[in-house]
Simulated assay, not measured.
Amino acid sequence: MPQNIEALSGSCVAIPCSFTLGSGYESSLTASCKGIWRKGWRRVHVFDSSLTGTGLNTIQGNLTGNLQQKECTTILNDFTSYFNDYFCFRLECDNALKYNFPGRVTIDVTEYPSKPTLSPATVDVMEGTSVSLICSAAAPCPSLPPTLTWTPTLNDSVEDLQETPNQVITSLLNFTASHVHHGEKISCTALYKRQAGKSDKSSKTYLTVTVLYPPKNTSVSVSPSGSVVEGSSVTLTCNSNANPAVKNYTWYKINGTEAVTLGSGESFTLDSKASDSGEYCCEALHALGTEKATKAKLLLPKSSPPLQSSGVFMWPSKHLELTVQKWARFDCLNLARSLP
Rank of each mutant, 00 (worst) to 15 (best):
M126F: 13
K302T: 15
R104Q: 09
L21H: 07
R43V: 12
T235I: 15
L21D: 08
E279R: 08
I15G: 00
P305A: 06
S50V: 04
Q195N: 10
S187N: 07
V209C: 03
A31N: 10
T237I: 07
M314H: 08
T122W: 05
D331N: 12
P113C: 06
L148I: 05
N77L: 09
C72V: 03
T210P: 04
T294V: 13
Y280D: 02
K247S: 10
A96R: 13
T235W: 05
S267W: 00
Y82C: 01
P244Y: 05
T257K: 10
V234H: 00
G103I: 07
C238A: 04
S303G: 02
A287F: 09
T176S: 09
G263I: 12
Y249F: 14
P113V: 01
F47H: 07
E291M: 15
P152Q: 06
L97G: 07
N248T: 13
S303K: 14
A293N: 02
S171P: 01
K253Q: 14
T30G: 08
V44L: 12
L339F: 15
P16F: 02
V46L: 04
L191K: 11
S219I: 04
E266V: 06
T117W: 00
H286P: 03
F175T: 01
N57C: 03
G10Y: 01
G231I: 03
W251H: 03
P214M: 05
A336Q: 11
K201F: 05
T205I: 09
V158G: 01
S32H: 05
N217A: 12
Y192I: 03
G53E: 02
D78Q: 11
P142Q: 05
G24V: 08
R90L: 09
K295P: 13
C17W: 01
T54Y: 01
D124H: 11
R337Y: 15
S32G: 10
L212R: 10
L262D: 03
P113Y: 04
P102D: 14
G128I: 08
E92A: 13
K292T: 15
E283T: 15
S267D: 08
N255S: 14
N4F: 13
E159M: 12
S304L: 05
L161K: 12
A121T: 13
C188L: 02
A14K: 10
W37C: 01
I75M: 07
S11K: 03
K253M: 12
N241T: 12
R104S: 11
P165H: 06
C135Q: 02
C135D: 01
V168D: 00
P340S: 15
E111V: 07
Q195H: 08
F83V: 00
A336V: 15
T129S: 13
R90Y: 13
R43D: 14
K318G: 13
N66M: 08
T30N: 07
